[in-house]
Write a protein that binds this DNA or RNA. Structure first.
Lengths: 105, 105
DNA sequence: CGAAATATAGCACGGAGTGCCATAGAATAA
DNA sequence: TTATTCTATGGCACTCCGTGCTATATTTCG
């Protein structure tokens, strides 16, 4: 019950805000600031954190890579610090970290 | 009710599969193939599809970019075909396309 | 009207991500 | 046991994604 409250609330609030805006009840500026405030913060992840994250989900590098639509070798490089995820990749990892692997299924 | 059936089912099935595997009831191979079959397919998006997708969500390029953790200019380039999203970025866009913007919030 | 948001544009640049192949250890099957 | 598959690491070359900055034109709003 309370497990899905977060995303459900988000969705309904978002719809409400949108309706308020189309009606003209609220500002476009307010709308924008609301949107920016609602995002899950994206914090940079260390190599070890990525590996721990994957092992928390009990999947191999290959499957993990599949979920994120990247190659297996890249996941290996992430976990060894040879490459650092950035931009979209970091966002995906943050999603997995906060909502689990099924959030990106 | 039926609106969230998809993700809920996914989550519970995934947990069930995991439990079955740890107990030893099912194969590791079977587990892997199941995982691969469960992913939302990632299809390449054209420039116009990306723009239509963003407008469907009623957000500006800036906010859209914020959601995906990329820069505003990149979104502009996507929509004009100057650059093509690939790998993690494409996965994120597919998520938005299929589950809405709140899925990546 | 003026001010802020929005979208387009161009350019240089670092490095993320890809692809392929090879290796080696661990797990599973026959 | 042997054989086969999965697993993770490693290297190397290469493409071009994504960033950062700036400038401009248009639109939208107070």
């Amino acid at each position: 019950m309370s497990k899905k409250y977060r995303s459900d609330a988000m969705a309904s609030i978002h719809e409400t805000m949108e309706a308020l805006h189309t009606i003209g009840a609220i500002d476009k500026r307010t709308m924008r600031r609301f949107d920016e405030a609602c995002l899950t913060p994206v914090s940079p992840l260390t190599a070890r954190e990525i590996k721990a994250l994957r092992e928390r989900e009990h999947v191999s590098q290959a499957i993990f890579a599949h979920y994120l639509n990247v190659t297996t070798s890249l996941v290996s490089k992430w976990e060894r610090g040879e490459k650092k995820p950035s931009g979209p990749a970091l966002k995906l990892l943050s999603l997995v970290e906060k909502h689990g692997l099924t959030a990106v299924a």
